[in-house]
Nucleic acid binder design. Structure first.
Lengths: 208, 208
DNA sequence: GAGCTGCCATACGCCACCGTACGGAACGTC
DNA sequence: GACGTTCCGTACGGTGGCGTATGGCAGCTC
């Protein structure tokens, strides 16, 4: 029965997770969400387009509109995956005992991770989008609180800790944007290592 | 005589500059470029669209394609205005004698100027565009060299000065992006002043 | 093996925008 | 007052994307 309003079939959790076998016959909602998130990493929100995605998945719009109500709900699903990833990252960081080492590792990761590893920058660009905006704010708030809490463990008062976390976020976002748009301007090779050390020193042991 | 290839009528400099009188009958190439730059400040590169711009100028595409070959050449013209603005800004900074005061003023401006005052962030987002990329790189290089030179006058060696200038750029870009996308996360009111002072301290007297 | 259901293919209408073709008004020039 | 030039209005075709409508196949069920 084809119901005119596709009612956005919600995937039950006990549905068998389909392995990525190339000869598979049908796609799942998660396949689409994964592909959308991937496209977003590489080409921004504009790359989350139904028809091109369908083509890259070797299927057609018919599949998409079976699993999703519209493009926005695909974006939503992709971002929910991202939220989960973000939570996992923080949980992993939590497992590092020494707060100093923790801060160092986080900073280093932020400035050496492959471009597109985190889409915060991309999302900030499209923060006006009704789906993107709220999720972005939620995630960013949690990260800032997380960062501020880590910094407080280093002995800073709350307001300074928040400023420090905000500065780290700002630098991360700025670097990511420059790396995307004008990587020639950033130090390469040996200079890059020196630059990362410099950043670590700038953000690392906050005295203020 | 309508020449099929409009040959991109180049405006001679002695052409009388048209005042912004509302009852004017014809638009100039500069009117279009101005409007395009303005649209870019507010809505990014995507807002530089011929038909909407025509509407906001109270005219039609007929006018546009008289003055310009295509959309890209409009973007080019708008960005050339921006290059000139950037040069003026640096020249104005040059006129401040005291290098310390100069750095302070520049930093303060970067973090308090109205959102959209500088479109570097917007352009970084669209750096893949064949017209945007080269101009952006040119301007940014000049700014970094300028910043590095100023910092050298404060007594830093060349490599440290470049790192410092790059950090300032990164922070500027990052703050601008966050201000556009999630201004709630940035300190407001009194906290904002404290934050600006904090940034000034972070970037201000470079000791490294 | 008929039917039912889940999933997909295809064709369509719609919209926003780009660029072109061409007609025509306004204005100066002789 | 005819004529040329400058500038604009408008209609058109093309492209790329969204969302809908509808048909159909494959696999299961009985």
């Amino acid at each position: 029965m084809r119901n005119g309003v596709p009612s956005e079939r919600v995937q039950s959790d006990d549905e068998p997770e389909r392995p990525a076998r190339p000869g598979r016959r049908t796609l799942s909602r998660e396949d689409w969400a994964r592909a959308a998130l991937e496209a977003m990493r590489e080409g921004g929100l504009g790359a989350v387009a139904v028809e091109p995605l369908a083509e890259s998945l070797g299927t057609t719009k018919g599949s998409f509109y079976w699993h999703f109500k519209d493009r926005d709900s695909l974006i939503q699903a992709a971002l929910e995956r991202w939220v989960a990833e973000s939570e996992e990252l923080m949980a992993a960081a939590e497992r590092i005992e020494d707060p100093v080492e923790r801060g160092r590792r986080l900073t280093e990761y932020a400035f050496t991770a492959p471009s597109g590893a985190d889409i915060t920058t991309t999302l900030l660009i499209h923060a006006q989008h009704p789906v993107v905006g709220p999720i972005l704010e939620q995630v960013t708030r949690r990260r800032l609180e997380f960062g501020a809490r880590l910094t407080e463990e280093l002995g800073l008062p709350a307001d300074a800790a928040y400023r420090h976390a905000l500065t780290a976020l700002t630098m991360t976002v700025g670097i990511a944007l420059i790396r995307r748009g004008a990587p020639q301007l950033l130090p390469q090779g040996e200079d890059k290592d020196a630059y990362v050390r410099y950043i670590l020193e700038l953000l690392g042991p906050p005295m203020t």
